[in-house]
Amino acid sequence: MANDRPLNQMVTAQWLLGGESIYWVAGKGWSDSFAEATVYADQATADAALAEVQEFVKQRVIVGPYLIEVEVDSDGPKPTSARERIRAAHNATFDIDHGSWTARIAD
């Protein structure tokens, strides 16, 4: 479908063995870092990148590649959804020390 606003996208996937979220850096390979990933400003190049990484699926290195939408400002790219923000952080958003409970044990 035609879309008037600029659409910035990245390719993301997960490692097959560990399941961690990863991002495609054109010409380099996969990175754990969302900030490093290549941003594609038009649908054709994004689709081409997605097609290119299918080889890693065949080689059983990654699983489930897909395109995500990102916003780009002077600080760099940012995910446009809560889901992708959380994925990019590689962890839950709350402290995994289980709140007061473990803190109290540690006393």
């Binding site: 839950a92 289980h98 007061s100 473990t102």
Partner: peptide, 14 residues
């Protein structure tokens, strides 16, 4: 469900 915890979570020590 202690105050501020993740419901149902438990550490190995616990």
């Amino acid at each position: 469900k202690p105050v501020g915890a993740a419901p149902g979570d438990m550490t190995a020590d616990q």
